[in-house]
Design a protein around this nucleic acid. Sequence first.
RNA 1: GCGCCUGUAGCUCAGCUGGAUAGAGCAGCGGACUUCUAAUCCGCAGGUCGCAGGUUCGAGUCCUGCCAGGCGUACCA
Length: 552
Amino acid sequence: MRKKLATILKDTLDLCFKEGYLRQMPLPEFVIEIPNNPDHGHFATNLAMTLAKEQKNSPRNIAEIIIRHLVDHDRFILKAEIGGAGFINFFVATEQWYNLLSNIITLRDDYGRNSLGRGEKIMVEFVSANPTGPIHLGHGRGAALGDSLCRILAFSGYDVSREFYINDGGQQINILGESIYSRWRQLSDPSYPFPEDGYQGDYIHELALDIAKETKLENLDKHEAIDLLTELGKDKMLKEIKEDLANFRIHFDLWYKESDLYSSGKIDSAIKLIEKRGLLFEKDGALWIRTSSFGDDKDRVVRKKDGEFTYFATDISYHLDKWKRGFKRVINIWGADHHGYVDRVKAALMAEGIPDNWLDVLLIQLVKLWQGGAEVKMSKRSGKYVTLQELVDDVGVDAVRFVFLSKDHTTPLDFDIDLVKRKDSENPVYYVQYAHARICSIFRKAAKENIHLPEHPGSILQRLDLDEEIALIRKMAEFPLLIEEIAGDLVPHRLTYYLTELAGGFHRYYNRHRVISNDRTLSQARLLLSSGVKIIIKNGLSLLGVSAPETM
RNA sequence: GCGCCUGUAGCUCAGCUGGAUAGAGCAGCGGACUUCUAAUCCGCAGGUCGCAGGUUCGAGUCCUGCCAGGCGUACCA
């Protein structure tokens, strides 16, 4: 509807220029917003104010001229008024709102879908937790964000791929093997030393027990045993990570192994490409890439003195591989502690001729856990942290996802377990789900009384003549544009707020008016209204990966 | 030192590309179930938008400086 209004305004300006009501000038940037105050209309624009300076006329005079010459062949606008310093407030003809509601009901699951992405290939890489321990809360937040983003991008016409990068090489994996080995030895010899930088968590102990049950380790020498434990431990950890994510309703299209980059020679070819561009040099026995030419603070090592590639080198080749696979755009979701790494990777990509804006990195801030009014301290080093699975077992997938998604990822998140566990009004996820369940309940009741949604709403909709009813439809009308904005700005948290407002609007309505009454057509009209709300709540929750229950 | 993020009601947070009287949930106080689910609703109270300047018709939003908190500044991964 906003687009329709924008067209009307443009046509109107053209007319005013042509007929000389206003001085000819380039079209200024102006906004059409939805005012907070209902007295200010359904839509408002600052158009007259943006014209004022150039027109050498007062905003209110210009608004007057625009209103007088509005090009509105379809009688879209009921009335237009001047407000404040020169806003133009528009009231849309009621019929338009009825059409919109009919449209929602026709489109159902597709209401809100758009073609912003034009089928473009886009990849979201997220979680990518090292297979050296279970996934914890921080990963969970990234998982919820990444998955929801993918759902929204797919809904917006992108061809989306979800990818998990497995760091299955390098030092930390060896430490995993050594840690398991020590725990295994400690089964028979409690004094056996544990590596200083080993992983402390109880899961290492469990892994040792598990593997010892299935595999004979006694006959192997230490190195063979550690190698084997590294492999088995890694596989078991990865399996657990996959299960935990599946329980969190998250599935990936591709699990990409870091080790494949080595075996396929992709690291070498990535570095050769940089060499070809003359951005590689040797210093102090190491191989460096001149990232400082592309906005990085300093140059970076890709191959160490000892001949090993750095993690940075594998990352460069991994991203080059993403590029070669034809993704038009890539989004990475990383923990905020990686922020120093962003410029470096972007610089390296630019050194390979990849444009700066190809990669978007979303940094998620820390999750702090609260219980009993105190912060639950977490540290991976000491092995003391709450896993995602524990939290999900405790409070349920829906609540965890909703809470994670209800905050902007740039702000640190305080997660209060006690609060999220309570299945009452304190938890917004139930507030939204409850509205859905309530509407389902109304439909059950209606079916019993043999009242059904009409096939062709037509004139029945005219029975929706309360301000609250029109206001609800107006709220519903915001949904498609909101989805486009979220897909464009990568901000799914806005959806949780929208859904809470929509649910609130319905709850209020429900408490004041009966949907089902003796008046059959009125009942049908209100069922149509309820149906619209239900459709949007269901679509919205599904984009967050949250269920929409029919009963609660 | 330099860089990134954050600072809005007692608490947790929204505030869309600058717009009209800064919002929501929780916590506090007072009300509403013989009627479609009270996991709901209604009302009251609660604010120097960290501080100080600047830009302009207009700033929580943009710019500069300062203060506070978090994180990062590896030939680790």
